[in-house]
């Protein structure tokens, strides 16, 4: 498998404080990868540098073998990255239909019929088609999260970055979400930043653990689960494994 996304020595510090330090990260095409770590481990900073919301202090980001470190956000998205926000960020005063259409139109342009088809497909996959005419602000929080996913789907991305997608969802909703994620995994590469361990363990093929801005461990869910350093990091015991 070839690497779709790669970082080399990616670092970012905030006024002397190292949020992310020398991270080498490789994500092969087609994989579902989870990125986990305790609060403040630098996950959000790392992902922000991947999509270009934050410039790294040093290091490079490669997407599909191409150095994208200097590219602005929109140019990276055009290459095939899609990002869903940790805190729901949809167009609240626009209809669901328009929300998803905006996501599809960048790819499909003025082809109204193709956009219409893409919108219906994305909305029905997350089960929101019946609400297409309503404004996003009328939806429940859980449904807004699903709308975000639908916007990700409509972009037909090569890499879908989901930033804590299950945060604030009810248990039933999480079960549905796992099923949806399983389907999506067949179509695209997924990078999942997640707190909910049951989601991570069930869905991810491989897990990367960040701690204090550095990669602490990487491996299959079983390996990571058994790793004493990871357990120590989550329990907050410093340096158990040395």
């Amino acid at each position: 498998m070839s690497a779709l996304l790669e970082t080399r020595g990616l670092s970012r510090s905030f006024s002397g404080l190292r949020a992310v330090h020398e991270v080498d990260f490789t994500l092969p095409e087609g994989q579902v990868r989870a990125l986990i770590g305790p609060n403040g481990a630098g996950k959000t900073t790392f992902v922000s540098m991947l999509v270009g919301r934050l410039a790294p202090s040093s290091g490079t980001v490669l997407f599909d073998g191409r150095d994208v470190t200097g590219l602005p956000v929109h140019a990276r998205v055009r290459l095939g990255m899609a990002y869903t926000f940790q805190i729901t960020s949809v167009f609240l005063r626009l209809s669901l239909h328009e929300n998803v259409a905006l996501a599809a139109r960048r790819r499909l342009g003025g082809d109204g019929l193709a956009v219409e088809r893409a919108v219906r497909e994305a909305l029905s996959r997350v089960g929101l088609l019946e609400h297409a005419r309503r404004n996003a602000e009328e939806l429940s929080y859980g449904h807004q999260r699903l709308l975000e996913i639908a916007m990700g789907i409509a972009q037909k991305p090569r890499l879908l970055i989901l930033d804590e997608p299950t945060q604030g969802l009810a248990d039933g909703e999480i079960a549905d979400f796992k099923a949806l994620l399983g389907e999506l995994a067949r179509e695209t590469t997924i990078l999942l930043i997640e707190h909910n361990m049951s989601v991570v363990m069930e869905v991810a093929e491989k897990i990367t653990v960040l701690n204090f801005g550095e990669v602490l461990a990487e491996g299959s869910p079983e390996e990571v689960h058994a790793d004493p350093r990871v357990q120590a990091a989550y329990l907050g015991v410093p340096d158990v494994a040395g």
């Binding site: 956000v73 929109h74 990002y83 609240l92 905006l102 996501a103 972009q155």
Partner: peptide
Amino acid sequence: RRPAGRVLVAIRENEERARLLGYDV
């Protein structure tokens, strides 16, 4: 009513989201 015009409305509503949909804001 054109796609470009819809993007303007999207920028008005949520600039960061429009950017992350790949639009050159």
